[in-house]
Design a binder for these strands. Structure first.
Lengths: 199, 199
DNA sequence: GGCAAGATTGGTAGTAACTACCATATGGCC
DNA sequence: GGCCATATGGTAGTTACTACCAATCTTGCC
């Protein structure tokens, strides 16, 4: 890799770090893009080339964690056992997120304070779930493939969201991995008041 | 109710209708708020008082459908059977949405074309699911109340989303009510490849 | 080393969503 | 008719974001 890519990674990282610093100090709404650009010593024009929207600055890390795991899932052999595969996806996403707990917490804090951030986070999750649904549908057979895939993808994402939420809310609680196991156990054990079928 | 509220409802409706008309003709991005205000013969200032953001113009109907059903659920007696209650919530949301199919379809079309609309839609859904989670948690007892409530609320919302998506994608397909039953049946029947528990 | 090609950068000008604010007009009540 | 609360319209300003252009820097080639 050449010097060009190196510098690109460096400035990208620099901008991202400065942005989190300013968001952390003054809040998302009270920080302008120009301030971030000035702090990173680049022109606003350059900043926009790296991060098309202000929210991207906050959410890129989460996006990477999610789509890395999805990429892994796509590369798995066609005869992969789906329940196992989905568990691995969950573990991979959580494992990636755990590598930077402070940033995850900050993302959730910013999302809680700023509607546009939570909107983009929700959209990111929605997009990921849709792509997982497509990938799952391609690996399923029988009736109601679309339904089944969508429900499985939705449930997978639900577990991830719930575990992360619980983890963020009380940092010194149960291990993330155990939380995931607990959630999956509840689903399997039938302890959830799922909507019933009644004609 | 006085003449004041009547006029308010009327202008609100007028603005909303004109907005959908313009969005439908020229797309969301190619319609400015000022154009909508001009079409509704009100000042931009007035429009912003009714609809704080451009996206609200698109999503208010869906928001009303969702939160009406949630309001109903909140009013139910404390000893309500939760699976039955959640099924009723699903039926109520779908029933409300079905009263205006064209608008639902338009919302989905606009969301598909415009990231900011899909972001706000996703955020709306996320907010609704959170409030349902809180309501459910208050009605549950035993261990892992938070987890159980979150998983149940997530599953409920998943079913709604999947049914609406399927319904919008092929308008002449199965009845909405039957789609919901099919989704719930799949969940109950264990046909979904849920993540397994493996230590 | 030097040079041409292509990529990266910074700056300028402009659009449009949204906010804060104030003067005016309108409906509700005596 | 007159008073009060509320709704309205307009103005000025901030800020995210886009399109575009000139200058600078990296890279591959001679």
């Amino acid at each position: 890799m050449g010097l060009r890519e190196l510098k690109r990674e460096r400035t990208r990282r620099l901008i991202s770090d400065k942005a989190f610093e300013l968001f952390s100090d003054h809040g998302f709404g009270r920080t302008t893009v120009e301030q971030i650009a000035a702090a990173a010593e680049v022109g606003p024009s350059t900043l926009y080339r790296y991060f098309p929207t202000k929210e991207t600055l906050v959410l890129e890390f989460v996006e990477d964690c999610l789509f890395d795991a999805l990429g892994w899932f796509r590369e798995q052999p066609a005869d992969l056992d789906l329940p196992d595969g989905l568990q691995s996806v969950i573990e991979r996403v959580l494992g990636q997120l755990e590598r930077n707990p402070d940033r995850v917490r900050m993302v959730y804090e910013l999302a809680g304070q700023t509607p546009s951030v939570s909107a983009h986070l929700a959209e990111l999750i929605w997009r990921w779930r849709n792509e997982l649904t497509v990938e799952l549908a391609g690996r399923l057979a029988g009736d109601s493939v679309e339904f089944t895939a969508a429900l499985a993808a939705g449930t997978t994402m639900n577990i991830i969201e719930i575990v992360v939420q619980t983890w963020v809310d009380n940092p010194d609680g149960t291990e993330v991995k155990d939380l995931a196991l607990e959630a999956m156990g509840l689903l399997r054990g039938g302890g959830i008041p799922l909507p019933t079928v009644q004609a």
